[in-house]
Design a protein around this nucleic acid. Structure first.
Lengths: 201, 201
DNA sequence: GTCTATACGAAGATAGAC
DNA sequence: GTCTATCTTCGTATAGAC
């Protein structure tokens, strides 16, 4: 999933490369520890163009990186939901996160979570994070409702899924093990399958 | 729950006050943005004694703050489990987090999560975070098993609960709303009640 | 658009007096 | 134990040449 980002780095301009690099670094070290120097080194962008592309400085870069990360993850989730039923799509979504964890040796997490936690100083980034979470939930809610689950239940089920997955990613990183995410996957599979079955008796 | 911490600040020595302050600041701004200056201002501790109390510097302070936060939260969870059945205890645990969010106007979250996300540079703090999550899960697992839930299910249920609550706290902060946590509470109540009922037919 | 140079502040850490 | 002073490094941001 994230490998697409890395490949696309060569094709786009410096501005876009900086945004992608910022998102990739944020998910590993957090917002505060993601310096311009690191973003420049990672993206290969020239030093002199930082404030040309991002007049509002780091706040703007972080905000756009958060939005980019949120959109990118939403696209992956939407694709999964387009190809499978909600039960399978949630499982696939979890698997892509498990890949992120194992491929990075548990160094990488979710950039949107990073923006939330350190976004007290960057309100715009925090708002972007909130919007991203909402968008992911909406995608799930739509799919659940399309499969006959009532609106209120679809909403709480969607929130639980997003929250549990994001939380499991954090726990997995702390423990350097995929086990937490896999246990959550199992519970979510059961829960979504039961809800779907109950919706069409 | 956390108000106890604030009250106890007057009674203990400078070292302990610094640890508590660090945990309180970490849960709001993250590890990286929690400077010694901020910890000193918040705790009222004298500047000259930093490296007397914490020879390994900030890494040591963050590590001890993470351990303190983890132990404190574990104590609250254990108390809830001692007084109620697991269903009610999980609900009460969530409520205490909801209080943290509303009392801080969604500025405060979980210090253990903060230590995890920025703990790439401080491995010891990350290990402390992993141990904290594991401890919370163990408390839940014990309680679930005591109520007749099989070991494997108890484990995945415990992981889901911790992950979902921690994730919901993050989403709630991003959206500046308690609604995500409340929806997760509802789902967890249903889920734990069903599991408990199924264990003793 | 991109460069170099630099201003300016704040961070963590250390040394030595009291 | 605590103080003051200082070192070093690194951060964001700006200015002005090309």
């Amino acid at each position: 999933m994230w490998s697409v980002i890395v490949e696309s780095r060569q094709k786009t301009d410096a501005r876009q490369r900086m945004i992608v690099s910022a998102a990739l670094l944020m998910r590993e070290r957090g917002v505060e520890a993601t310096s311009f120097s690191a973003v420049l080194a990672h993206s290969g962008a020239p030093r002199g163009s930082i404030y040309h592309h991002f007049p509002r400085g780091k706040a703007q870069l972080v905000e756009e990186a958060t939005r980019f990360g949120g959109d990118f993850i939403a696209a992956g989730l939407a694709a999964a939901l387009a190809e499978e039923d909600p039960v399978g799509a949630v499982q696939r979504f979890c698997q892509s996160w498990r890949d992120v964890l194992s491929e990075s040796d548990f160094a990488a997490g979710c950039p949107v979570v990073a923006a939330t936690l350190e976004g007290e100083r960057t309100p715009a980034a925090r708002e972007a994070a909130g919007a991203a979470f909402e968008r992911w939930e909406e995608l799930l809610i739509e799919a659940f409702e399309r499969h006959g689950i009532a609106a209120a239940r679809a909403a709480s089920l969607a929130t639980l899924a997003i929250a549990a997955i994001e939380g499991a990613i954090v726990v997995a990183r702390a423990q350097r093990s995929s086990a937490p995410l896999e246990r959550v996957m199992g519970e979510l599979e059961q829960l979504t399958a039961t809800a779907l079955a109950g919706a069409r008796p």
